[in-house]
Design a protein around this nucleic acid. Structure first.
Lengths: 232, 232
DNA sequence: TGTTTGTAGATTGTCAACAATATTCTGGGG
DNA sequence: CCCCAGAATATTGTTGACAATCTACAAACA
């Protein structure tokens, strides 16, 4: 009990609700809280060492963020995203990423190339080692850094929200990334996209990112279809 | 029998926090709560006839929605959006609207043309009557219905969030729309965009919506610049 | 046997009181 | 006259308790 409190005490600068929200968000995005599962207030508040109030406030934030679904007098549940919803999210994401690479290609000088190269190298190393989760994390971070590079806060917020919901969908699909070839293909895509951006070739960058994200979309859809036939 | 039940049921379905959040959101978007002003819990809870708990929960939702800013131990304030932030939001909005008209133009049959025509006619009537606020509302609704027409829930959510933040910016700029010519120009733009969509001409629709939103962007920026020099 | 109804338990919804923090005001000193 | 320390006030942060609602189970009846 005391140990649990220290973890929260060390971060006293943030209010309790925001801490709880961050913790829950992390667990949801990591998949330790599976989509569809119920989040009961009392066990959570006991587990986190806080009262129900902050937990409820965190629920509100998570609901607005699209990570949980609240049913009055019933409870809150980790949001489940249907294949069509995921497809729609992907559609918006493509539009955003097109804007991202176009902006970056218009001014490639501002991009910290070393950071991206390091990220891509690490992704390949992880893939070689067979650590697919780490490789996937690198790939996700590559996209995120790309969006960060635009310097557009609204764009970054919007993008992250969509990606968060998509990761939710990936968990629902039980789609653990085990396919080394697709991971390597992603890294190769990323290299091509990056080079197009650095060359200032917006058209090529747009073409490549579109193909890249569309491939991810159809791949995820296929994975869910396979998982769906077996159980759901 | 059904009438009373539905009203009761609708009230029972929404929890107090969601009611409060909706009320506050309405007030913020309408401009009756001006950007930068503080929202104190006790007066609000007294005014709305509820306790502080629901109000706090509503604050969390509004914060995640980007309508208020929360400072720990200081209070919550209606969010103020800077010109650069507004510009960035507009940039994302353009990307979304491009997707919207492209999707609609790809399948114009699904669009309820009568609804849009009625909306445009009403907008012109309001402009002629000198009711600029109503005309502006019609124009906003036109865009919203366009996005609704895509049938993409994620796209609609994302779009509405951005538009909400932009309306916040308009209030900050004290930019009451009084310019009849720009309002009429917007209606004319809308007619052109709609006809391009109905003709299935995606390229023309994209070109026109881009010019249209970009015009709105620069106009809003100019209005704020003018207001900024005079007072702020 | 199947349905229904009542009851017990659990969970959420709401509230009012208490604690912690920030802001304001006031009095004294330089 | 200005500045600073310290109390007074106001506001937020958090908690525990109480009320309302839903769920699950079991007993009674057709």
């Amino acid at each position: 009990m005391t140990k649990r409190l220290t973890t929260i005490d060390l971060l006293r600068r943030h209010s309790l609700p925001s801490l709880v929200q961050g913790q829950l968000e992390e667990m949801i995005l990591a998949g330790s809280l599976t989509p569809g599962s119920q989040l009961t207030e009392i066990p959570l508040s006991l587990q986190l060492g806080v009262s129900r109030g902050p937990v409820r406030e965190a629920f509100r934030g998570l609901e607005e963020k699209g990570l949980v679904r609240v049913e009055k007098n019933r409870g809150v549940f980790v949001r489940t995203i249907s294949p069509v919803e995921a497809d729609q999210i992907y559609e918006v994401r493509v539009a955003l990423e097109l804007l991202v690479v176009a902006k970056l290609a218009a001014d490639p000088g501002r991009l910290a190339q070393a950071k991206f190269d390091a990220l891509l190298d690490k992704a390949e190393r992880m893939a070689s080692k067979g650590d697919f989760a780490a490789c996937h994390a690198c790939n996700v971070e590559f996209h995120d850094h790309l969006v960060q590079g635009t310097g557009n806060a609204a764009l970054l917020d919007t993008y992250r929200r969509l990606v968060g919901e998509l990761s939710l969908f990936r968990h629902r699909a039980h789609a653990r990334i085990r396919d080394a070839s697709s991971l390597r293909a992603s890294v190769a895509d990323h290299r091509a996209i990056l080079s197009a951006i650095l060359a200032g070739d917006a058209a090529a960058a747009r073409r490549r990112i579109r193909r890249h994200v569309e491939a991810s979309r159809s791949r995820t859809q296929r994975l869910l279809a396979a998982a769906g036939t077996s159980k759901d």
